[in-house]
């Protein structure tokens, strides 16, 4: 009896192991530390992020979740006085290595920001910007890319008749989906989203969330959110950050229904943060 029980347990473990094994890592973070000047913002972060999943990163303000996601495409370098140690492997190569060109990295890893940040150009030019700088000049191909990206971001029907108009004429929610479309236009491998709905109203938020579910089929998505319900709704896996450390990292259902760490439980049940 005992033995069978044990066996079935280990079998189950093996099974989950198997599903993990089937999926590949896109990012493998090993002992990542990060300092802003003398402030230790990330402490020994070890985190493996999987392909074609939505990984949510949650935690209270100042826990390092935004810092972490910005490290994944090295946008963090724009802050003066940042130092890092450790390793982040993207598809097997350490991106913190100076020889890894940021431009190369960012061609593979797209990003959507907290506030919509379209360029002060037409809707069409916003989408075509990425492909253009990367050397795609053919008008026909560009037209195709623009349509495909806008469709991919579920905004095509709303803007198809005014592609030449300035992007600033769109509503906040539309602008954010435009920014997602802009990101899709260079066909990235991974999409980083840094609280993409924090500046949006509930209806726009819902649309973006539905879009994320759609995008998961083709892209690996890592999303920072301060909204736990959002993480529960849309993600497959969730990492809980606190004071620069990863407290807990599991599949979303488990972390929300049965957290192991007391601090995770406190945060999820709303006792702080």
């Amino acid at each position: 009896m005992n033995v069978t029980l044990l066996r079935s347990q280990s079998e189950q473990d093996e099974k989950t192991q198997m599903t993990h094994m089937e999926k590949e890592f896109v990012y493998k973070t090993t002992d990542l530390n990060l300092w802003y000047g003398s402030t230790h913002a990330l402490k020994n972060v070890n985190l493996d992020l999987y392909e074609n999943e939505v990984t949510a990163i949650i935690g209270p303000s100042g826990c390092g979740k935004s810092t972490y996601i910005k490290t994944l495409n090295r946008m963090i370098e724009m802050v003066p006085g940042v130092k890092t140690s450790g390793e982040i492997q993207y598809r097997g190569r350490n991106i913190l290595d100076k020889s890894y060109g940021v431009e190369d990295l960012r061609t593979q890893v797209g990003m959507v920001f907290q506030k919509p940040n379209p360029f002060p150009k037409s809707i069409y030019e916003n989408i075509a910007y990425g492909p253009k700088i990367h050397g795609i000049k053919n008008k026909k191909v560009l037209d195709e890319i623009v349509e495909k990206s806008l469709r991919g971001a579920a905004i095509w029907d709303e803007v198809k008749d005014r592609l030449k108009e300035n992007a600033y004429g769109l509503s906040g929610g539309q602008q954010q989906r435009l920014c997602i479309a802009r990101c899709l236009a260079i066909e990235p491998d991974v999409i980083l989203m840094d609280e993409p709905t924090s500046a949006l109203d509930p209806i726009s938020t819902l649309k973006v969330e539905e879009l994320i579910q759609e995008l998961k089929k083709d892209f690996s998505i890592i999303i920072v959110t301060h909204n736990m319900q959002q993480a529960a709704r849309i993600s497959d896996r969730t990492a809980f950050f606190l004071s620069g450390e990863v407290v807990e990292y599991r599949d979303t259902t488990t972390i929300f229904s049965n957290p192991t760490d007391k601090r995770t439980e406190d945060y999820i049940s709303g006792r702080f943060g």
């Binding site: 379209p118 360029f119 990425g130 700088i133």
Partner: peptide
Amino acid sequence: PRSIREGAFALGATKLETTIKVILPA
């Protein structure tokens, strides 16, 4: 605004491309 520059950098644009194609027109 900085956020517009970040938008361009996040697409893999170099500083020159960001400046010529985004900042100068803006």
